[in-house]
Nucleic acid binder design. Structure first.
Lengths: 345, 345
DNA sequence: ATGCATATTGCATCCGGATGCAATGTTAGG
DNA sequence: CCTAACATTGCATCCGGATGCAATATGCAT
């Protein structure tokens, strides 16, 4: 073998080594180099070892772009988010990106105005040959959804779903969550429960609201009031201000971030005590809810399991495996200190 | 012209139209198609219009990957972050991504464990031909920095810098910020000011600490105490717990998120009142600091201007423009209600 | 109208790997 | 030892655009 030991600094140049150069160096063909780096290619173990060894030595790595050009894959997962200021999304992005990186997948992040149509973004991501997308917000046209799945790429709705569009999704059981919250309030003797945060286009909050109201109805307790609003601290603040005046004895906010704004509105805007005067329950379980000022009782989305499920669905290497189904994961009530027992004993 | 009007649905197939196909359709060469889409290429305005019109009609768009293969550019900006749970980073990511998208640049997000060496990530981003990087955390080897700049791509440290590494950065004037905070505390009659959050490897917090201590020294007020800690809510909580026992009359936290944790520790852990018993000042100006429970007085980084500056530096199309310099932008004190006047009148 | 400079367009080839098919090498059965 | 069957490797070509250079077209001055 004629390879010197001292030329391993070939990689230090700004232009990298190509497969053909390495091939010439080894006296073999470029195809063989290529095969050494492709799983399941027809190459003898001996030859592969030799190539990989030389590649390591010379600092050769296949050019991702060139590979992508012919394979139509990229090792990139597109992610569509809005509202990274909502800590819930931030807390998903982090572990999701990390898990994907562990699998050798990069994340192309597309940030959009909340709740919009995202066909244009998907189109764009398609141009970059992303292998899959995780969508956390927005609506998609049926045609775009079809076009996407036609390419054999996975598309995954994370923590929500779009009515009438058959893309797989990973969600927690929102309706059950709503019911659990209702049951908690009922058990603690609440008679005037209100709801905040339903939005016309978000099936997620619908399910939360429906579970909540259904359970109340079954107990014969009417919903005392409802206000909608943006999924922000400010939205929750405004809604609570509006709703609080009519004195419900408890408010269920469809998102923790709204619940925090709501609690502050109740306390600082209306001078009420939480939970003594009014109970508050949230949904999501963001870190801030655990802060001592809030001690928010909430329904926790099982973020870790959801990320795991997402990664599993995205990582399906060969497109001919059975089409995966949406998964609905169970969440759990996290009881802290924003609900007070109002039963008369 | 033989183009029908009804075949504009060519784009609906999962495989897109190539430039050569479009060229054949128009009876021209593929080169001309390519030139029609490249700024500054030699092509007559008339021909370009004709091509673009046909492209629109047939739904042709140049393949980004193929283009990237020969140009070595990608229209992607890599972003390296840690700690998206720190709202400060989340609040940067959002506008930054949006501004870049407006310029037709996508963002490839790389999330790493906080404060580590990120050579491997940069190497990876290089493989994807990213046009530039924005680094928000971590250290880079001198060799990697050189290798990166040798490729003619911009690299930008956002909101921090790495000692000994000459990559341009966009930061606010941290030292001035530290001084301003010190002056504020002094003006309000504080005699026992403490500092929390300096970290050995973060020049940013060093500068904040130095400005703070320098200004105190000039006024003849000794630093009452100092505790370091992680840049998290919990880190601030723990530090305040430790420091609070010795009763400083004020604490300057190097990061708002630590200040919030600190305030909670002082209030709920030690039973102190803020600002009556002890004043607290933060740095960054995250949204949560404005919440009524905290009303945190803080030094605000000029995030919008910093993002603008970053975008301007990244958007330098031709690499032969004068090498841009780092920019240091002025921040400003945001006075809310976590500092009390302790002057005896 | 003629000649030369300049503007456009086409041709051929490159970017770096992936892959179908043919050629060669290897192993096993007879 | 011979040949069928399979395992490896190389060859040629493709993925879809970009671009240097030659060829052609246009414009201008004389």
């Amino acid at each position: 073998m004629s390879i010197g030991d001292d030329d391993s600094d070939l990689l230090s140049g700004s232009d990298r080594l190509t497969g053909r150069q390495l091939a010439k160096e080894l006296g073999i063909s470029q195809s063989t180099i290529s095969r050494a780096f492709s799983d399941g290619a027809t190459i003898s173990p001996k030859m592969r070892a030799k190539v990989l060894e030389a590649a390591r030595k010379f600092g050769y790595q296949p050019n991702v772009i060139a590979r992508s050009l012919s394979t139509h894959r990229s090792g990139i997962v597109g992610i569509v988010v809005a509202n990274m200021t909502n800590p819930f999304y931030a807390s998903i992005l982090q572990p999701l990106a990390r898990r994907l990186q562990q699998l050798g997948l990069q994340t192309l992040l597309t940030s959009i105005p909340s709740g919009q149509q995202i066909d244009a973004q998907l189109h764009l991501l398609l141009q970059y040959n992303v292998d899959a997308i995780v969508i956390m917000t927005g609506t998609v046209s049926q045609e775009m959804a079809r076009r996407w799945t036609d390419t054999g790429r996975a598309a995954l709705l994370f923590s929500y779903s779009i009515p009438g569009i058959d893309l797989i999704s990973v969600v927690c059981d929102n309706e059950a969550g709503g019911r659990d919250v209702a049951r908690l309030l009922l058990q603690n003797g609440h008679k005037r429960p209100a709801f905040v945060g339903r939005s016309p286009d978000a099936a997620t909050t619908h399910a939360r609201a429906e579970g909540f109201e259904a359970e109340l109805a079954e107990a014969g307790v009417p919903l005392f009031g409802r206000v909608d609003g943006e999924y922000t601290y400010e939205g929750g603040y405004a809604a609570a201000l509006e709703l609080g005046r009519s004195r419900p004895d408890s408010i269920f906010f469809a998102h923790d971030i709204m619940a925090l704004g709501g609690m502050d509105a109740l306390r600082y805007g209306l001078g009420l005590r939480v939970p003594e005067d009014i109970s508050v329950v949230g949904f999501d379980n963001i870190p801030q809810g655990a802060w001592p000022t809030y001690q928010l009782t909430t329904f926790a989305q099982p973020v870790d399991q959801m990320v795991e499920a997402a990664v599993r669905l995205l990582n399906r290497r060969n497109p001919d495996e059975p089409a995966p189904a949406s998964s609905v994961l169970p969440g759990a009530l996290v009881q802290r200190n924003s609900v007070q027992n109002r039963t008369v004993r």
